[in-house]
Design a protein around this nucleic acid. Structure first.
Length: 557
RNA sequence: GCGCCCGUAGCUCAGCUGGAUAGAGCGUCGGACUUCGAAUCCGCAGGCCGCAGGUUCGAAUCCUGCCGGGCGUACCA
């Protein structure tokens, strides 16, 4: 069962191809046809600018090309009531209203699988996200990255990609040492020893909790050894416990990574060393001022970058090069990194890095997620990480709920900063779109409950007569339902998860309006059956859409 | 200084990768529950798409330069 949109698209594509072949032109891969829904109803249900884009190849007037295309479109009478050529060369398509209900049958046949596609063809994709240093709990900014990464992975999966979600653990280096020492000092403090707690150490309350935990479990045994001997334990302990906490916070938020990748392993198994040697062999590394530099300017970075410091220690970037080399060695066709926007200066060197390692720039997609401003009732909530005074992701999720938090994180393009207001996130009104969407689902479920109470049939071995759906609002709903797979497709191709919540909000808005103007359960049995069939399809698509977002679809609210 | 991102209705944001007459929600004001859920719906008002050039049949969208905001600019991670 093919949908109106894809039938139409295929029809135009065939016509264009045959037109080009008659002219002896065979570069079909250039043939990208856009099928849009015009803003104005008089311009039809769908429109294409195909004729205009073909002018360059065919060297003819766009309107003449449009005419040729229309004439070559086979089988259009079954699908279309009318075709018009308008303006500079648009082709406007008016779909036969009875065709809209085709989508309902497709939805009923596919159920949970409606929206699933296979154009990803099993392409192996890795999405790396969150990857927060295990030095403290996740904050709200990490939450946004978590939501974007998780949902992007879901979207790609439903489009036929093979996706792994990965967390890169920065479990080595100076910050880990500082973390361990912070815990050690809090430990001493806890046992009544006077300490001078440095300003650049981790001062958060959670470190004091951890210190008390160490005292409870291990008593004062680390007073007997020197700081140097004690530190490895404290570093390990702090890192492990904090990472555990991060896992829990992510689980509560509904995010589960497939792979947890240790940075330290790259140091220990020689991968870092091998990466440096490989780059040296290809002449991408040189020495200067006693340090080793990576020649990232060769690929457009503004300056070269140090990989091995004069004191012999490797930099974070060196490890990241080894990490990305490792990713490709694991045979990912595409790697997606999701970073906080404050790391944007890091992009050019990373892109240079993968090219130096022999990969094409398109093999690495870096998504920058802008900052989150946390508000309460319109007023900024103070968030000073240094002072250890920040609102954690966990606190936000506990307060507003997983569903609201996830949805709000996704109702903005990633590269746009986000104001997250705790009060509106809890409001059950229209300025909080989560409940708007969920309410539609609950409402639909409720209709089915009532129908069953009244003994009205609510399941169908064969579809009811759908010709009785003659309201324009019904056609519009069915048309929008048919767009769902296409929305997922564009979200996947552009790596733009925000399209899904926007689509759902639009769909549900049309439904609420319809619901207020029409009765699903009426005196007319045939009409009732058809409308229930439509309602069931709506319920399915809302549920599928919310599932992609990792948001629940409640039957009652 | 240089680099990246962002300037669209009073506020928060979409705008399908260059299409036709600019789109939602909130907020203001006014209306709709004896009916399947009013966490809903309907209506009114609101715009020099930051400014100025350029590219072409056509620009909110692409290019250049300004103005304004955010973030970067380590032999930190």
């Amino acid at each position: 069962m093919s949908l109106v949109r894809s039938r139409l698209h295929a029809m135009i594509h065939r016509a264009a191809r045959s037109l080009l072949q008659d002219q002896g032109i065979h570069n079909e891969e250039d043939l990208v046809l856009e099928l849009e829904i015009p803003k104005i109803a008089e311009h039809g249900d769908y429109a294409t600018n195909a004729a205009m884009t073909l002018t360059r190849l065919l060297r003819k007037h766009p309107r003449a090309i449009a005419q040729d295309l229309v004439e070559r479109m086979e089988g259009r009478d079954d699908l279309l009531a009318k075709t018009e050529i308008a303006g500079p060369g648009f082709i406007n398509f008016f779909v036969r209203p009875e065709r809209w209900s085709d989508v309902l049958q497709a939805i009923h046949a596919q159920r949970d699988a409606f929206g699933r596609q296979d154009f990803g063809k099993g392409t192996r994709v890795q999405v790396e996200f969150v990857s927060a240093n295990p030095t403290g709990p996740l904050h709200i900014g990490h939450g946004r990255g978590a939501a974007v990464g998780d949902v992007l992975a879901n979207i790609l999966k439903t489009c036929g990609y093979t996706v792994d979600k990965e967390y890169y653990i920065n479990d080595t280096g100076k910050q880990m040492d500082t973390l361990g020492r912070s815990l050690y000092l809090r430990y001493l403090e806890c046992l009544g020893r006077p300490v001078d707690f440095p300003d650049d150490h981790y001062k958060g309350e959670y470190m004091k909790d951890l210190a008390r935990e160490v005292v409870d479990r291990f008593g004062d045994r680390y007073l007997a050894v020197s700081e140097q001997e004690a530190l490895p334990f404290f570093t390990q302990y702090a890192g492990d416990r904090i990472l555990e906490g991060i896992r829990e916070d992510l689980a509560v938020f509904g995010v589960f990574h497939d792979i947890w990748f240790s940075e330290r392993s790259l140091h220990e198994n020689g991968a870092l060393q091998r990466t440096m040697e490989a780059l040296e062999r290809s002449g991408m590394i040189y020495e200067h001022d006693g340090a080793k530099w990576f020649r990232s300017t060769a690929y457009g970075d503004e300056k070269d970058r140090v990989v091995v410091r004069a004191n012999g220690a490797t930099t974070y970037f060196a490890a990241d090069l080894a990490y990305h080399k490792n990713k490709y060695e694991r045979h990912y066709d595409m790697v997606i990194d999701i970073w906080g926007a404050d790391h944007h200066g890091y992009v050019p060197r990373m892109m240079a890095g993968i090219q130096a390692l022999g990969r094409h720039p398109s093999d690495l997609r870096i998504i920058l997620v802008q900052l989150v401003n946390l508000l309460r009732g319109g007023k900024p909530v103070a968030m000073s990480t240094r002072a250890g005074e920040f609102v954690t992701l966990r606190e936000v999720v506990d307060e507003v709920g997983k569903d609201a938090a996830r949805f709000i994180f996704l109702t903005r393009r990633s590269d746009s900063p986000l104001d997250f207001d705790l009060e509106t996130a809890k409001k059950h009104s229209n300025d909080n779109p989560v409940y708007y969407v969920q309410y539609a689902h609950a409402r639909l479920c409720s209709v089915f409950e009532v129908a069953e109470e009244r003994g009205v049939p609510t399941s169908w071995a064969t579809p009811p007569d759908l010709r009785v759906l003659t309201e324009p609002a019904e056609w519009d709903l069915m048309k929008q339902l048919g767009e769902f797979p296409y929305v997922l497709e564009t979200a996947a191709r552009n790596l733009e998860p925000h399209r899904v919540p926007y689509y759902l909000t639009d769909l549900v808005s049309a439904f609420h309006s319809y619901y207020n103007h029409n009765r699903i359960l009426s005196e007319d049995p045939a009409l009732t059956q058809a409308r229930l069939y439509l309602a069931d399809a709506l319920r399915t698509v809302i549920r599928n859409g919310l599932a992609v977002l990792g948001v629940s679809a409640p039957q009652k609210m």
